[in-house]
Amino acid sequence: MKWTTSQMDMYLNSKEYVDTAIIPLIPLDWKEDPKGKVSMGEFSSILVEEVERQFKGRVFQLAPFTYLSTEEENSRLERLVSWDKHFYDNGFTHIVYITSDGVWKRVEKDLPDMLIWIPSLSLESMDDTYAKEIISQQMKQILPLITAKWQEEPKERQ
């Protein structure tokens, strides 16, 4: 389900079936390599959209978690943990963070739930069918990660 009022109604009617929140992690930087950051954001948004399409009935695609690349690692982590806590406490037992930004890989062990990090590819120079092919290949990797997660017990929070 998406971050819209109409889908919110759908969520409220079938809450008990929706136990997974997807949070896109999107970096911002207008000084160092702005285009690279935009590309990361674009790529992870495409993946998140696609995950939502496949698992519409069980996942909720939250508004993106955005941060300046210059933000202190600890403060960024702290903010994400508080997002996680808020949504965990309010009905989501599984939370998946999807990003193309490698900085999260470094702090993966400190994250309360599952990180999916896919390095971004520049889709702008590819023709349409090839780009779609790439995305569907990536999906074949990502979707099983999430279905496998559903087989496991939800991660305990401190």
Binding site: V18, Q54, F55, K56, G57, R58
Partner: peptide, 8 residues
């Protein structure tokens, strides 16, 4: 599209 809640 699954007729339950719309998954694929």
């Amino acid at each position: 599209v699954c007729t339950h809640l719309g998954c694929t």
